[in-house]
Amino acid sequence: MTGAAAAGGAGARRAICVYCASGPVDDEYLRLAAEVGAAVAGADATLVSGGGDISMMGHLARGARDAGGRTVGIIPEHLMAKEVADLGADELIVTDTMRERKRQMDELSDGFLTLPGGIGTFEELFETWTGAYLGVHDKPIVLLNHRGFYDPLLGWLDDLRAKGFVASGALAKLEVCDTVGAAIQYLTGR
């Protein structure tokens, strides 16, 4: 079953998985998350997220719903209290493990967007990106480099490419966008 069909039924809208911080961040990033949620909804796409209702994750889901979008949250049971599960989600899937959470996020999604975040966000990005490079999937992956947040990472990756540790083909699988509009356009064609 394709991501869009799984997330909303046959012939349904595209589903975009967004990775972002679930811990405290300042208001700039909370506003960014809400803007991304609204943009996903505005592109008539379903938002797939980690199922939390706090920090960027919560603002992301509320931004999508406030703009009339559909949200699917996927959260492991052991994080239900810590991340305060998004009980307002149109569909909340509770998994036994983090691995099951990520598998379902992958299966339900047609593309992936990474916002600023920490090690959990990085891990999700790198696993999804590696899967694309290895041919496990052919779904688009976008890194939103909001105000240069990921400039140090991108510089390090370029250095690793120059040293032969990262193939140019791998870098080509990651689309870097500086604006929400460009990211959503790349993922949805809208």
Rank of each mutant, 00 (worst) to 15 (best):
74 I>N: 08
57 M>T: 10
176 V>K: 00
140 P>Q: 07
131 G>L: 14
161 R>F: 00
186 Y>P: 03
111 G>W: 11
167 A>R: 09
105 M>Y: 05
129 W>E: 08
157 L>M: 14
101 R>A: 07
63 G>N: 09
89 A>I: 05
102 K>E: 14
34 A>C: 10
111 G>C: 10
14 R>W: 01
62 R>N: 11
109 S>F: 10
129 W>R: 01
186 Y>F: 14
190 R>I: 09
156 W>N: 01
99 R>Q: 15
73 G>A: 04
145 N>H: 04
74 I>M: 04
100 E>W: 13
142 V>H: 07
144 L>C: 14
184 I>S: 05
184 I>Y: 13
69 G>A: 13
173 K>L: 03
36 V>C: 08
31 R>I: 11
58 G>N: 14
132 A>W: 01
41 A>C: 13
58 G>H: 04
14 R>L: 14
40 V>K: 05
96 D>H: 09
190 R>Y: 08
64 A>G: 06
60 L>C: 10
76 P>R: 05
27 D>M: 12
122 F>Y: 05
98 M>S: 03
83 E>T: 09
28 E>M: 13
168 S>C: 03
188 T>G: 03
123 E>A: 01
144 L>R: 06
115 L>P: 07
169 G>N: 13
16 I>V: 14
3 G>K: 06
63 G>F: 11
16 I>H: 10
167 A>Q: 03
115 L>Q: 02
28 E>L: 12
86 D>E: 03
127 E>H: 12
16 I>R: 14
44 D>F: 06
71 T>F: 11
135 G>A: 06
49 S>I: 05
30 L>W: 05
9 G>E: 12
4 A>D: 04
190 R>N: 15
134 L>D: 02
182 A>M: 07
110 D>E: 08
96 D>W: 01
119 I>V: 13
84 V>Q: 09
118 G>W: 07
54 I>P: 07
43 A>K: 15
13 R>T: 14
166 V>N: 04
53 D>R: 12
178 D>P: 01
148 G>M: 06
94 V>E: 08
64 A>L: 09
47 L>W: 07
124 E>Y: 12
58 G>D: 13
129 W>T: 08
131 G>M: 11
102 K>Q: 14
42 G>F: 03
145 N>G: 04
80 M>G: 02
81 A>M: 13
11 G>A: 12
69 G>H: 09
26 D>L: 02
61 A>D: 10
136 V>A: 13
45 A>F: 11
123 E>M: 00
24 P>T: 15
17 C>E: 09
165 F>E: 01
57 M>L: 04
169 G>P: 11
109 S>V: 06
131 G>D: 11
91 E>H: 10
168 S>G: 15
175 E>V: 02
39 A>I: 05
154 L>Y: 00
126 F>S: 12
118 G>F: 04
14 R>D: 02
166 V>Y: 02
50 G>S: 04
17 C>A: 15
172 A>S: 15
121 T>A: 01
163 K>A: 07
143 L>C: 02
59 H>Q: 13
36 V>D: 13
174 L>E: 04
